[in-house]
Computed example of a mutant assay.
Amino acid sequence: MNNKTLGVLALLGAPSMAIGIYVEDQFKPLANSWWTGVWGIVYITAWMGSMVALNRIGATGSSRFGRTLPLIMLGTLAIANVSNGWQLVAPTFKPTLFWALDMCWPLSNVLMLIYGITVIVANRLPGWQRFVPLLCGLWLPMALTSKFWLPSELGFSLVTAYSAVAWSLLALVILTNHRSGHAAAPLSHV
């Protein structure tokens, strides 16, 4: 799959968390149900596509850390998607293993913060595009901050809108990058 296709899929999946959470807020029986697994799979799979495309572009640079971090990100995202699949097929069965797998959701967000800083330092993306992965990485700190400092309805609206905008911008980075049209080299190995 080339980067343009990955960018389109990332753009389509970018608002899925915001939509999923909104639907769950409006239709309470869907909260923490199979529906959560559906939107979670769409969201994480789109994120994984973005990571593959950014890796092909070389967004994190050529240092050992810059080559390894995207692979770690993809690993945590894949594990998070296993928990999404579990949520889809067995939403009420949640032993300790489920919660261990599910911890890769917040871990992936923490890693995205580090990833965003790495992209800025590597300076491989042009202009404003260099800052978009960090914008995505700031989602978790923003979500946690809004939970404690903003009224719940305002925080909910702000965090879900922020997610949709940040991940859409990341997809646009992939779509507008001059290397996006090429099926570039596969994921680098360490």
Rank of each mutant, 00 (worst) to 15 (best):
I72K: 04
I44W: 10
A122R: 10
R179Y: 10
W39S: 13
D102T: 04
A161W: 09
V132H: 01
S188F: 10
L69M: 05
I79R: 05
R67W: 02
R124V: 07
I117K: 12
I120V: 11
F131R: 06
T60V: 03
R56T: 06
G155F: 09
A80Q: 04
W86E: 05
L134A: 05
P186F: 04
V23Q: 01
P126R: 11
G116W: 12
T96R: 15
L9H: 00
S50R: 10
N123E: 14
S146H: 09
Y162M: 07
P29I: 03
L111E: 00
V89D: 03
Y22D: 12
G20K: 02
L169Y: 00
S50Q: 14
S157P: 07
C104P: 01
A122T: 08
R124M: 11
T92H: 14
A164D: 04
T60L: 10
L54K: 09
S180N: 07
S62F: 06
S62C: 06
L158P: 04
S163E: 13
A183S: 14
L107S: 10
A46R: 04
H189N: 14
A59Q: 01
I41E: 09
K4A: 01
W105Y: 14
A90K: 11
A78G: 04
R124C: 07
V159E: 08
L69D: 00
V8I: 15
T118G: 03
T160S: 08
P91H: 07
Y22S: 15
W99Q: 13
F93P: 05
